[in-house]
Design a binder for these strands. Structure first.
Lengths: 290, 290
DNA sequence: CATTATATCTGACTAAAGTCAGCTATATGC
DNA sequence: GCATATAGCTGACTTTAGTCAGATATAATG
């Protein structure tokens, strides 16, 4: 009925009016939108003038005036940067914090109303995660994290849950060769998570032993981020980290039920090798020389 | 990791910047956004001044000036309404049509770029359909349509495809008691589709025979619109139409694999009755006295 | 036909956003 | 130490959006 482009544009129309409604609710606090946006940027942790300017895409003159008006209202304080007195650091005053909290409450309220309109929350949220991930595709950042950190554990939990769903006989971490977290921390190995605006979207572990051989473990990409090439990016990051650590040969095990993963390995220079462990879950084994 | 409200707000942030980008690309044609929006509204078929004003939420004075500026550019022509000379009818000139097409090309281009960034188009489009449907929840309109019309056939096609997916032994329309289209057109019966901004989201058929008994057929709600209470709305509309047509008893058949449907019927005054036909697919039968 | 309502337009205004040149203070490189 | 670069600020300006009170023409009503 509707072609794909029309469907995207239908989405755009729907979303444009919803965004407009949020803007209008922000005007309810008697402050122009520009000033409200600057206040919110500061509340969300942007502390330096040029950072806020870049984030909001504002002209330096305009920015300066908006800061002045917030200062006149007693909502912010500015001090010179410790190492560079040309730069200014912005901080919310207690009154500014209260005002920021009021804006936060408005935003939260709107988000709750949106969710309340829909019975299948999780389906809807998954759709929103996916779209936000595509839109902010360029903003998906990979960084190394401790495998015991919150974001890493979130990814691992999602990974195990997905294996349990996809393996016909389920999945129990305890039966699998659960890599010791210490082996996925430098200098032995590392653990990499992909984050997009606060939401973890993927992970991969490099499990080393100090020897010149290491293993890739726990490659996972959130359903919301599939199709964006994130698996490949994670694998490249893991391989680069391995090279840095002086590792010459990488191995990994996987299961043929995870078709996308197998395809990714074959397309990026991995070769199938015979079984090299007695873990009950994997049935496919790969190797790559760096 | 992120709570539901934060996820909605992450979505809002992503979408706000995307909408801003579209606005900026629209500014590239050397015309303020307000004028561009009016030109687009006209191009999309809004022909009367008050219609455009309501659609865009503009003040009458501002609207008038924007029309004047488009007229000065030679992009539109205004004539008096045939029956009411106070009202003005707006039409694009050939130059206006060209300019409108340029905006359309920009929008289409953006939509294509968006789709190109993602491997799984259909998944992404389904997510966008769902969100647009929730956002435009109030704009989902039910209207009667010929069961042979494009929108009705789109719905029926989706309905059959879904049955084929959900029935363990598939579904073949030819084996089922396919209601004759004539029985779902007034005065015997009717067919109702739910449309949201050009996208069909659901349907239901009322199959009559001229007698005081009729059957409900083909109740379908698009996956993108589930959880919005659309099934109930469609059923109410069908029951109202039945009352109008002087029908006293409604019957329907369904399959226990379609759990949501059975639940809906039970909750809205239907009672289970014994099998009343020999169609191979249904295994549950309901009746309701109006 | 007079009255009232409606659709659109015009003039006069304001607020907000944005632009740009030049200023001041500080930092950096040679 | 001096030239140059950088960060932020100020003043003067323009554009865009929006508001509101009438004005004008036409339509509907009794």
């Amino acid at each position: 009925m509707l072609d794909p482009v029309s469907r995207v544009r239908r989405f755009n129309r729907a979303v444009t009016s919803a965004v407009g409604a949020l803007d209008n609710s922000f005007l309810g606090r008697g402050r122009p939108l520009g000033a409200a946006r600057v206040l919110n940027a500061i509340g969300h942790g942007h502390a330096d003038v040029s950072g806020i300017r870049d984030y909001l895409g504002l002209d330096s003159g305009l920015m300066s005036r908006l800061l002045r008006s917030l200062e006149d209202e007693g909502l912010i304080e500015t001090t010179a940067h410790k190492d560079d007195a040309r730069r200014r650091i912005i901080r919310l005053t207690p009154a500014g914090r209260r005002e920021f909290n009021a804006y936060e409450a408005l935003s939260n309220r709107q988000a709750e109303d949106f969710l309340a309109r829909h019975a299948q929350r999780e389906t809807l949220l998954a759709a929103m995660d996916m779209i936000a991930s595509v839109l902010r595709h360029d903003g998906i950042a990979l960084h190394e994290a401790d495998p015991r950190s919150d974001e890493a554990r979130y990814c691992l939990g999602a990974y195990y849950a997905e294996l349990a769903r996809r393996f016909s006989h389920g999945f129990d971490v305890k039966l699998s060769r659960d890599p010791d977290a210490k082996d996925m921390v430098r200098p032995r190995g590392t653990f990499i998570v992909a984050m997009s605006d606060g939401l973890p979207l993927g992970c991969v572990g490099l499990k080393g032993s100090g020897a010149e051989q290491a293993e890739i473990k726990r490659l996972w990409v959130a359903p919301a981020a599939r199709g964006l090439g994130l698996g490949r990016r994670l694998m490249e990051a893991a391989e680069n980290a391995a090279r840095e650590l002086g590792i010459a040969v990488l191995r990994l095990d996987t299961n043929s039920a995870l078709a996308e993963a197998g395809q990714l390995y074959r397309k990026s220079g991995w070769t199938e090798i015979p079984r090299f462990n007695d873990d009950p879950y994997p049935d496919l084994f790969f190797e790559k020389r760096l």
